[in-house]
């Protein structure tokens, strides 16, 4: 791997839910403007790991982290790190589309509004840019004041992506973003991910191996809380080093 500063990094990372050891000794470094896919069977810890990068696990009772998570070389679990500032840099898209029960426009500018930005021109400009970047603008530009809940599932998910883009993060975390969508919507999301990696570092959790193969540059395989293998996606899918990876990729368990 290259010697430049990795965008995201985990060092000797362990995580626990109460007594359950959910993530075991994980070391990984992800480069800027690449797509990394986390794959593995359900319960392997891939989603838990993803949520460490924007500290979404903070609110879970009994959850404990040891080791370091670095963003641009800075440990995000240091005491003086402000979680809200961190999340402006690390956006997130969830498994099920979760638009707020507000208008499309208000959904997109929510992140700006909570930062106290009231300037209408700024809000409108950001909304248009984000919706364009999320490939949704043409479909909704005449209905910005309609409820976001009226959109289709695929549109809702792209709205959630636009919402994340609006606060100009450098990293976008995606937790199985297409698992609740039909094939056509899924294809659109995948296309979008391909576009977005020009400007953003993307980490995507998926249990769809073809999807990982289609969208990602690197793939990390998790199994029972361990990072079994991490490599270029092509390498990983053609010549996996670990037997467990091979078994998973060839569909022997999962």
């Amino acid at each position: 791997m290259s010697k430049k500063q990795p965008k995201l990094e985990a060092r000797d990372l362990n995580a626990y839910y109460g007594d359950f050891h959910a993530l075991k000794n994980i070391n990984i470094a992800m480069e800027e403007k690449n797509v990394t896919a986390f794959i593995g069977p359900s319960g392997c810890g891939k989603s838990t790991f993803l949520r460490l990068f924007n500290r979404m696990n903070d609110y879970i009772d009994g959850f404990k982290v040891e080791g370091n998570i670095l963003l641009d070389g800075n440990d995000i679990y240091q005491k003086d790190v402000r979680v809200d500032e961190l999340r402006k840099q690390v956006g997130m898209v969830f498994q099920k589309p979760n638009p707020f029960p507000k208008t499309i426009f208000e959904n997109v500018v929510y992140g700006l509004r909570i930062q106290g930005i009231k300037n209408k021109a700024v809000l409108e400009e950001t909304a248009e840019r984000s919706l364009r970047d999320a490939a949704l603008w043409d479909e909704v530009k005449d209905n910005l004041n309609k409820s976001a809940l009226a959109l289709s599932g695929g549109q809702q998910q792209r709205l959630c992506i636009a919402r994340a883009l609006a606060i100009s993060p450098s990293v976008i975390l995606m937790d199985e973003p297409a698992s609740a969508l039909d094939p056509i919507s899924t294809a659109k999301i995948e296309e979008l991910i391909y576009e977005l990696k020009n400007d953003y570092t993307i980490v995507i959790v998926t249990h769809n191996m073809q999807q990982a193969g289609r969208v990602s540059d690197y793939t990390a395989f998790f199994y029972m809380g361990e990072l079994v293998e991490f490599n270029k996606t092509k390498t990983m899918f053609t010549s996996p080093k670990d037997e467990r990876t091979q078994n998973y990729i060839t569909g022997r368990f999962g």
Binding site: N54, M56, D84, R87, F94, P99, Y110, G111, I114, I167
Partner: peptide, 12 residues
């Protein structure tokens, strides 16, 4: 999910 969505955008 609504709370998660809001927190993920940096809301307190």
């Amino acid at each position: 999910s609504i709370r998660d969505g809001s927190f993920a955008l940096g809301a307190s």
